[in-house]
Every structure is written in structure tokens, then in C-alpha cells.
Amino acid sequence: MLFDSEFLKKLEYLSLISKRVFRGSLLAQRRTMQMGSGIEFADHRTYYPGDDFRAIDWNLFARHNELLLKRFQEEEDLHVYFLLDCSQSMAFGAPPKFDFARQVAAALAYIALADLDRIGVTAFADDIVADFPLTRGKGRILALLKFLESVEPRGVDTDLERVVSGFLHRAQRPGLVVVVSDLYDPKGFERGFDLLRHRKYEPHVIQVFDRYEKEPEGMLGDVEMWDVESGSSRKVTVTEKNLRTYRQLFNEFQEKVQAYCNRYGLGCTRTSTEVTFDDLILRMMRAAGAVK
């Protein structure tokens, strides 16, 4: 069972840690830039007729004889969107990358829900395949887990641009978008993230890979290479030289993801499925400076 009682205990533990020392750091519990009826002072502006004179700063008027309005930053719930890759490539590995991805998504969603944020989960492959609508409240976690359990790997080739386009066409508030994927997009992952950034979303990448992807074993010799994502196969002879080239290309890909995130200031977490999901969350907390 993917989400057993042990898993839930771990979620609770992570939630407690995040509340104690991590509040607002991981998912950037933040204020919206919209001015409103909050209590935190933002700035002043000139009073125009029709404005609520209750907001006039009378102290300033007394000192400078100038009508200025006090503006306050309005507090809003943070919207956290999870884009969960459920393409066939995520089913690869032992344990499967997809299981790990779902556990990580569930854990982060639980922390967000516990922090009174709104979360939504979108499963995608070559297109959006399933949705868990925006929801709020810790009580929704079981529904979320049920949803995650119901999602199966499917689709052909990952198409992040297409998925993001579909995601953005929905009328929703921008927020944090956590993309949990292996990013094996034949057309390139960058375009999808570019779209998110342009629409004022803040993408956070959690790239998942299996150790056999990094260090392939049993590949030497004449093999029929079967692509689990596309279902195609190819007869090839893998040499030591090929393996060296493969490792080099894989590492370059990893560095490319990291470089993209660094360039645009995106949060980036690259992880192997060898670590447990709770270790990964703690690592992310450490990276954010919340836990030492």
C-alpha cells in the first residue's frame, strides 16, 4: 500500500517540524502584492475623492497638511499547484519513480494544507490526465491520498509544454507550481517552465531519477532496448564506450536542469529514488535553511 499508516505518521511528523521551524519557508507562505484590508502597513498614496477617508493618515495630515491614504498589504492564501508526472517513464525503477513522486507530492501537499494553503494536484503525461481541484484544509488529505493512489502511469511521451498550456488555460490565481517529474520530455522541459514563469507562477522543480538511470547495469552487449514510455524497441550493441557516453549525457542533462533553475531563480531539487521521501523533505528544509 502506497500510503499506509506509517506514511501518515511521517506526514504528521514532517508537518510538525515545518510548523515549528519551517513556517513559510518551504512553500513561501507569503503575502500577496494586492493591497487590501490587512494589518501590515505597505505604503502611502495620495487621497482622491471617493477614497475611504477612514484610511487617511491623520498624523501625516497634521504634520504636513497633506491628505495621504495608508495602504495595507492584504493577506491571501497561497495557492500551491502540484504537477505530477505520471508518464510511463515514471513507472521505471525499483522502487518506481512514480511511487516516490506521489509520496513526495503527498507530503508537500500535507504540509501546505496544514499551513492553511490551497493546493491542487494535476497529473500529466503527454497531456493532463487527472486533476485534484484546489482545496484547503488538513481534512482533505485523505481525499488527496485517495486521488494519488488512483493515478496510474500512462501516456506516451511527456509533453510539458502542452501540459502547462492546458494548466494555464484554467482561470486560477498564480501561485507556487511544484513539478514532480523526471523531465524526460523529448521536446525539452524548458518551454513548459518558461510558460509558467511568464504567467507569474513560481515553478519549483523536483526532478526524480532512478539509480539505474544514472548507472545502467546489464546493458553491455547485444540488447533489445525497450523504451517503457513510448513502447518502442531497438536492437543495439552497447559497448563500454556507449555506457561512458550515456553517463556523460545523463550528467549533462542533470546539470542542464540545475542550470536552468539557477538562471531563473527557481527552486530545484534533484533526487534519486534511493532516498526516502521524508529524507528528501528534510533535505529540502535544510536547503531552505530551516533545519540544520
Binding site: 538511470e213 545502467p216 540488447v223 533489445e224 550515456y246
Partner: peptide
């Protein structure tokens, strides 16, 4: 003889190689 079938998560990198 039938070749050994080896699953890979993606052929992105292998394609570049071959």
C-alpha cells in the same frame, strides 16, 4: 537467438548515442 530485452525509462540519451 532472441536478444536480451532491456527496459529503459527513456531513449533520449541512447538516441543521441546511436
Amino acid at each position: 537467438f532472441r536478444l536480451r530485452r532491456v527496459p529503459v525509462s527513456t531513449v533520449l540519451f541512447w538516441r543521441q548515442i546511436f
